[in-house]
Design a protein around this nucleic acid. Sequence first.
DNA 1: GCCAACGTTGGC
DNA 2: GCCAACGTTGGC
Length: 154
Amino acid sequence: MSKRNWLMKSEPHEFSIDALAKVGKEPWSGVRNYQARNFMRDDMQPGDGVLFYHSNCAEPGVVGVAEIAGLARSDPTQFDPRSDYHDPGSKPDQPRWLLVDVGFKRKLKRTITLAELKAAPELADFALVQRGNRLSVLPVSPAQWKFILGLEKR
DNA sequence: GCCAACGTTGGC
DNA sequence: GCCAACGTTGGC
């Protein structure tokens, strides 16, 4: 399978780009949306590029570049009754939820804000800027990837 | 299978 | 904190 690119959202007060820089690699636990899970399970490959996005904060936007560091595997938090992500309906021999490991590549020189992304005609088809989109994991085309990172130098 | 109620996401 | 938009749940 050829290399693809993704955007993954994280709330910076939960897990920021600086936190990823510090640990180097993070198991992306807690995804509880089937569409996002299917992207991880069916389409993600080690080495795929990731735009790291800060959501639910003062300045939402792309703040870093990361990469997929492993194939999808069972998310252990679904079996932990003390976890916010516990899912009593999921069976260990047939886990409902998966995670991938995400590796730090670099922090951007500046935040590429959601406002900028929304203002760019080049990104009209980008899922992130479309109305009502709440997916926390979404695909980025090669053209979108190049355009978004091109904004960093402006 | 329909759909109202409810919970969550996430920008503002 | 507000609320629009969306996904999920569960009664029927």
